[in-house]
Every structure is written in structure tokens, then in C-alpha cells.
């Protein structure tokens, strides 16, 4: 009898070890504790024992069954708690359902940022056609015909008198023809240059030009305004310089460089824009009295600004429109 009892206990404990859920546990209950279970069978055997052995085995049998039931209950409790936990479980770490805000092209974002700075200074924003007349794009801007200054801007011509504008300056001409001073405006837009496509140049790019014409416009104000702009765009510690240059439509003319020192690289001066006092010839060409009024103008390439700001070193990437690029901005 003792052997039989030990066998049942041993097998019960072995089975209990292998249980991992409530369903298996229920099978154990049936196997050991049901009416026909193994413990019931032991009690049946017990009934057939000789009288003198009964007290000894009766006590043992009761203790063993009680202990086993206790172990069973403990495991049941544990497994129920576990089961409850899974029932309530939500994986809060799953990625959310997709909601995507698109984005404006980084060139447009750059134009908006730059425009914003100048709008804050009271500049209006004007646009104009990209297919322009030679008169608006060159002549009125003091580029004489057959002058080497025309070589400064390689031009796509449509015919002798029409072309794809090489700068947004013709918008200045249109504006000045239409409106008497004071004029304070910027002109963003696409411009075209007949240059081979490479990492450094593309057949088109974006420009923002500015114009201010009034009775007391000075170079000193131009300089102050552009330094303010550079600080707003590149940070208040930006190091800059103005150096003399030449544009047919401004005099005196200058270019503005900023000191550029990317981490771990040697610093150098980088041109960011051209500027100057509107040439009296240009004012006269549009019917503005150049003795009474003076003006300043400036212009910058948007691609160049974006390349500097975002560390882009191949201009073509702007026009490839690779989604992997677009979605970065």
C-alpha cells in the first residue's frame, strides 16, 4: 500500500510540473481528484485493507491527499492570475495607425523662411513671368547689347527678343514701371541658366531678389538690412563681409560672404548674395527720377542657401524628387 501511495504522489507531482495552463490543470484534477481519480482509487484499496493496517495508512492517505490538493490549489490560483493578466493585455507598444502630413519642397520652405524675414521688415512679395522679353531681362537692367556683361548669365533664348529669365530682376522692372516709389518688395521665383547639369549647377534654380526705392535709401541701410537678414537666417553670431563686385543694374555693387566652418573642416568665405545701389540708368529706364530717388537691390540663390543650411552638396538632389529626400523635410 505504501508503495502505491508513493507512486501516485510521485506521478502527481511530476504531472503538476508539466502543467502550464488551466486547461491542463483541469485534466490533472480529473486524473487525480475526480470520483474515479487516482486518489479515489487509493481509498478504494484502503477499504480492502486488514483492520489493523487501516489506522496507519488512513492517516498517511489523508495527509498525502490534503498536501496534494493544497499544491493543486496553489497552482490553480497562480495560473488563474496569469490567465487574467493575458485577458487584459493590450500591446501599447504597437506602431500607431499611419497619419502623414506631407511637406512642401525644401526649396519652397527656404523661400518661405527668407520671405518671412523680409515680410517682417515691411517688404511686399511680387511674382512675374518666367518667359521674359530681352527688354525686361537685360536692356532695362543696363546690360548693353554686345557687352561682355551678358556673358555673366548664360541664357536660354526663345528668339532674339524673348528668353527664359536669367534672374527675377525683370519683376523689379515690371513693378517700377507700374508703381511710383516708395517701393519695397521681394521677388521669389524660378530662373534659368544655360549651364550643363552637374553637382554644382542646374539649368534652373530659384532666386529671391529684393528692391527698395525711396527718397533716402542708402548703402548703409542696405548693409544694415542684409546683416540683419544674415543673422536671422544663419544665427546672430554669423561672421560676414561685404566685398566690391559688379552687376550692370547696381552701382556701387557688392557681394556678401559669410564665414563657413562645418565641423571638422577648414573654414572659408562663402558667397551668399549680391547687392548694390540701383544704377541710375535703371531708374531712368523705368521713368523714376534718379536724382530724387535712390534705391537698393539684392539677390540670392535659394538652392545655395538650402545647401548651406542643410548640408546638401549636390544641387541635382532638389530636382530628383526622391521620396526618401522629400520625406526628410
Amino acid at each position: 500500500m505504501e508503495n502505491q501511495i508513493n507512486n501516485v504522489v510521485e506521478s502527481f507531482e511530476q504531472d503538476l510540473k508539466e502543467v502550464s495552463d488551466l486547461k491542463q490543470l483541469e485534466e490533472i484534477r480529473i486524473k487525480y481528484f475526480s470520483r474515479n481519480g487516482l486518489f479515489a482509487k487509493l481509498f478504494d484499496e484502503f477499504k480492502n485493507l486488514p483492520k489493523e493496517e487501516k489506522p496507519k495508512y488512513g492517516q498517511l492517505l489523508n495527509t498525502v491527499k490534503k498536501n496534494s490538493q493544497q499544491k493543486f490549489e496553489e497552482l490553480k490560483e497562480k495560473l488563474s492570475a496569469q490567465a487574467k493578466k493575458f485577458e487584459k493585455f493590450i500591446d501599447l507598444s504597437l506602431p500607431g495607425r499611419e497619419h502623414r502630413i506631407g511637406s512642401k519642397h525644401i526649396l519652397i520652405q527656404t523661400i518661405e523662411e527668407i520671405s518671412g524675414i523680409f515680410k517682417g521688415l515691411g517688404f511686399s512679395v511680387y511674382t512675374g513671368p518666367e518667359l521674359e522679353s530681352d527688354a525686361n531681362n537685360f536692356e532695362a537692367l543696363n546690360f548693353p547689347e554686345d557687352h561682355p556683361a551678358r556673358d555673366m548669365q548664360d541664357t536660354f533664348f526663345v528668339n532674339e527678343n524673348f528668353l527664359l529669365r536669367t534672374h527675377t530682376s525683370p519683376v523689379q522692372i515690371r513693378l517700377m514701371k507700374e508703381k511710383q516709389p516708395p517701393i519695397r518688395a521681394i521677388m521669389p521665383g524660378k530662373v534659368y541658366r544655360n549651364e550643363a547639369i552637374s553637382a554644382k549647377s542646374y539649368c534652373l534654380f530659384h532666386q529671391i531678389e529684393g528692391l527698395y526705392v525711396d527718397t533716402d535709401v542708402t548703402f548703409s541701410e542696405l548693409k544694415g538690412t542684409l546683416v540683419y537678414f544674415a543673422k536671422m537666417l544663419f544665427g546672430k553670431n554669423v561672421k560676414y563681409r561685404f566685398r566690391s563686385s559688379f552687376f550692370p543694374f547696381t552701382e556701387p555693387s557688392a557681394e556678401v560672404d559669410i564665414w563657413w566652418e562645418p565641423k571638422g573642416k577648414e573654414g572659408r568665405w562663402l558667397e551668399i548674395l549680391g547687392c548694390g545701389m540701383v544704377d541710375p540708368n535703371v531708374l531712368e529706364n523705368v521713368g523714376i527720377d534718379s536724382e530724387k530717388y535712390t534705391g537698393y537691390a539684392f539677390g540670392m540663390g535659394v538652392e545655395r542657401m538650402a545647401m548651406l543650411k542643410y548640408g546638401i552638396n549636390d544641387i541635382r538632389v532638389f530636382f530628383d524628387n526622391d521620396y526618401r529626400f522629400l520625406s526628410q523635410f
Partner: peptide
């Protein structure tokens, strides 16, 4: 004096389209 922004309408269009999840591209005009 009155300020003008001739790009304002296009800016609005861009704002709405990006809010609708579109990405802007700029391609060659030639």
C-alpha cells in the same frame, strides 16, 4: 502703405495639400 503678397494664394494651396498628406516636388521646366 498696403502690402501685397502675390504668393499668398499658392502658399495656401501648399498648406492644404501638405495637410492632406501630399509631398511637394519641383521638376525641370525644360
Amino acid at each position: 502703405e498696403e502690402k501685397v503678397d502675390q504668393t499668398a494664394f499658392n502658399t495656401k494651396v501648399r498648406d492644404y495639400l501638405t495637410a492632406l498628406g501630399f509631398y511637394e516636388i519641383v521638376t525641370n521646366s525644360l
